[in-house]
Each structure stands twice: as C-alpha cells, then as structure tokens.
Amino acid sequence: MEQRIGSSSKPLEGAGFDPAFVPGLTSPVSGETEDTEPADAVEAADTHESTVTAEASEEAGETAGDEIPDGPVFEAADRRAKIVADHRGVRLSLDDQACEFRWDEIGAVETESPRFGKRFTITVHTPDRRWYPIEIEATSRALFAEWDDQLDAVMDKYFEDETPQTETPQTEEPRTEKEEPEESD
C-alpha cells in the first residue's frame, strides 16, 4: 500500500487567512522555482511563442505602434515604487506588489508634495471610498511641479468627471402682491 506524504489540498486565500490580502493586488512571487524542463526546452518554447505572436500580428496588419494611441503619459519611479498613468488607466507598483485601475474605476487622483523632503505622494481614490497611496522619492524637489503638470495633462485627457454639472437657477424678482383695483362708487 502506498502512502502520500504532504497535503493534497490547496492553501486557502483571502483576508481571513492572510492579513495582507487586498483585492486587486497580485500575490507576491514566491522564491521557489520549479525547474521541471531543461533550460534549452524553455528557451525553444519562448522563441516559438514569440515567433507565432509576431506572425499573428503581421497577418492582422498590426504593429506595436498601432496599439499605443497618441496622448500624454505620466511615469514616475524610484528604487521601490512606480506609477504609470496613460490611456489604459493608472498602474501602481511597490516592491513586488502591483495594482491597476481603469479610468472607470477611479473616483479621484490626489497629489501631495511635502513642504520639506523629496517624497511625492499620489493617492488613487475609488468610488467605493477606498484609497491607494504611493510615495515616489524624487531626485530633486524641482520634479514635483513637472510631475504635477504631466499628471494633470493625463487626467485632463483621459479622466472624465461623471458628476453632472448643475445649473444655478436664475434668481427671480420678488413677487409683489397685486393690488386690487379700487372700487369706485
């Protein structure tokens, strides 16, 4: 009779089992690698896949430049953090964690530059009252104004504020009671 060593069930995921679990974020890459195939086979498979992808895009008449529309792009990064805002939305990454927000998933984007120091804070707010801040360390404080301008250009182009503009009612002249004509005798 054979016995298996170890558990055959998968570990459970979610906030109840992992306090660092946040929906929408990718899970960290584990340090363990499973090399079941020789390196030559993996390299050959990668080369084959890239050839097939290139042939398929040539047949469709697409090039890499066709996929990217002309428009402003904001990108800022330091040694740990990175933010990219373009036609697809806003992508944040910190160390090995990353999240992506499409423009329809964003309620607001807030920037904050400190009075002292070089950490520029960008916070993405979602309509369900969640926020995702990220701090980018700038090489100089002069970059803050440039980053603000670049992000404003992207927001003006792609972010649509869906709050309806209410028209202010025009004030009417106060009504006066009409005087009744006097009766003549």
Score class of each variant (00 low, 15 high):
Ser93Gln: 03
Phe120Glu: 01
Val124Phe: 04
Phe120Lys: 01
Thr121Gly: 14
Thr123Arg: 12
Trp103Leu: 04
Ser93Asp: 02
Ile106Ser: 05
Cys99Met: 10
Asp96Gln: 08
Thr123Asp: 10
Ala108Phe: 07
Val124Arg: 02
Glu112Ile: 09
Asp96Pro: 05
Arg115Met: 12
Arg119Asp: 12
Thr121Asp: 12
Gly117Cys: 08
Phe120Ala: 03
Glu105Ala: 15
Ala98Arg: 09
Ala98Met: 12
Ile106Asn: 06
Asp95His: 06
Ala108Trp: 11
Val124Asp: 00
Thr121Val: 15
Glu112Lys: 15
Asp95Ser: 04
Thr111Ala: 12
Ile122Ala: 10
Phe116Tyr: 15
Ser113His: 10
Arg119Lys: 15
Ser93Lys: 01
Thr123Ser: 07
Thr111Lys: 10
Gln97Ser: 12
Glu100Met: 10
Glu105Arg: 02
Phe101Gly: 00
Leu94Gln: 06
Gly117Glu: 14
Glu105Ser: 11
Glu105Lys: 03
Val124Gln: 01
Arg115Glu: 15
Glu100Val: 13
Ala98Leu: 07
Leu94Arg: 15
Leu94Met: 13
Trp103Gly: 06
Lys118Glu: 12
Asp96Ala: 10
Arg102Asp: 09
Val109Lys: 04
Lys118Tyr: 10
Thr121Ala: 13
Cys99His: 01
Glu110Gly: 03
Val124Glu: 00
Asp95Trp: 06
Arg102Gln: 07
Phe101Thr: 00
Asp95Asn: 13
Ser113Phe: 11
Arg115His: 14
Leu94Cys: 06
Lys118Met: 11
Ala108Tyr: 09
Glu105Asp: 11
Gly117Thr: 11
Cys99Asp: 01
Ile106Asp: 05
Arg119Trp: 06
Trp103Lys: 02
Glu105Cys: 05
Val124Tyr: 00
Lys118Arg: 05
Thr111Gly: 07
Glu112Cys: 11
Val109Leu: 02
Gly107Glu: 14
Ser93Ala: 06
Glu110Asn: 03
Arg115Leu: 08
Glu112Leu: 14
Ser93Leu: 03
Thr121Phe: 07
Thr111Pro: 07
Ile122Glu: 04
Phe120Ile: 00
Arg119Ser: 08
Glu105Phe: 09
Glu100Asp: 10
Thr123Met: 13
Ser113Val: 11
Thr123Gln: 13
Gly107Val: 09
Ile106Pro: 04
Gly107Lys: 15
Ala108Leu: 11
Phe120Val: 01
Arg119Pro: 04
Lys118Thr: 10
Gly117Ile: 13
Asp104Val: 00
Asp104His: 03
Leu94Ser: 13
Ala98Gln: 12
Cys99Lys: 14
Glu110Gln: 05
Ala98Lys: 06
Glu110Trp: 02
Gln97Val: 14
Asp104Pro: 00
Phe101Ser: 00
Asp95Ile: 00
Asp104Ala: 02
Asp95Arg: 12
Gln97Tyr: 09
Ile106Phe: 02
Phe116Arg: 14
Ile122Gly: 04
Leu94Val: 11
Cys99Val: 15
Trp103Pro: 14
